[in-house]
Amino acid sequence: MRAFAYTRAGDVDEAIAALAASPGGMFLGGGTNLVDLMKLGVASPGLLVDIGRLPLTEVRETPDGGLRIGANVRNSDLAAHPAVRARYPALSQAVLAGASGQIRNTATTGGNLLQRTRCLYFQDVAKPCNKREPGSGCPAREGVHRDLAVLGHSAACVATHPSDMAVALAALDAVVHLRGPGGERTVPLCGFHRLPGDEPHRDTVIERAELVVAVGLPAPPAGRSAYRKARDRASYAFALASVAAALDVREGAVTDVRLAFGGLAHKPWRARVAEEALRGAPATEESFVRAAEAELAAAEPLRDNAFKVSLARNLAVRVLRDLAAPDGGEASAP
């Protein structure tokens, strides 16, 4: 880790100005990913602008019946927030399915969105990686890639986004509120993270010196929502695949559905093809299977991760079936 300067911002504008003036600088939030990457040599900022004490810590009701979540709301506080638990259970469950109690106490909402891939080549500075060092190559495609992408990857990069929280946010039509030197803007969560294409070093659409200040949630979708994650280890492990879903069923037919996959792509994967196939369809196992398969038809698995496709299909069907069940199955909501 190279030596760096440090400044603690007094307010949001000061933070943005400090970073805009320092080309080698980075924002420091909870630091659970950034400090890790600095130790690995993957990130080498010359200046850290500490935003950890900015008062972006509120979860606020919005007039449209949604929530505005400050970027510095800790993961554990977000998951435990009464409004989140009651109205967006998929989000609470997703946050709680990630990392450990200790990490969730430190990690922030904004930082969670901006965490970087856990691809083993990305984390090893002695090896090529297009995300870390554009143009150096992607050894994962032919190398160790069991945990990596099956959807939306490119010749340049097969990394996955590791967040659980972001998958639920994608399904819940969240938006990301950004503030930068040029003012504020709002980006839909589903458009916030990018597919790698030939610029895999860009994880998101965020611009230099732009700061995530909040995440906005619209009013909760009708029906119930849930998150389910499959992983090798029973806890404290990244997803092999995960599903966030919200489902509303009236008289046996799907009236509304939101579905997103995690662990499959460079971004949380909003399953719009599946949603389209389900809307108006009977809320049956057959419909769920057909919809999931329609979405996953686009999958291009690598040598060692084809199992993720059937795993994701099974998970989606499972979560939807549980949500459709009169008793809510295992993924019950209030």
Partner: peptide, 20 residues
């Protein structure tokens, strides 16, 4: 944390009925 009502991923969702 548990004493303050913070859930975990294995906490039944029904517990949200009595937050805190």
């Amino acid at each position: 944390e548990a004493g303050e009502g913070a859930p975990s991923v294995v906490t039944p969702v029904a517990g949200a009925a009595s937050p805190g």
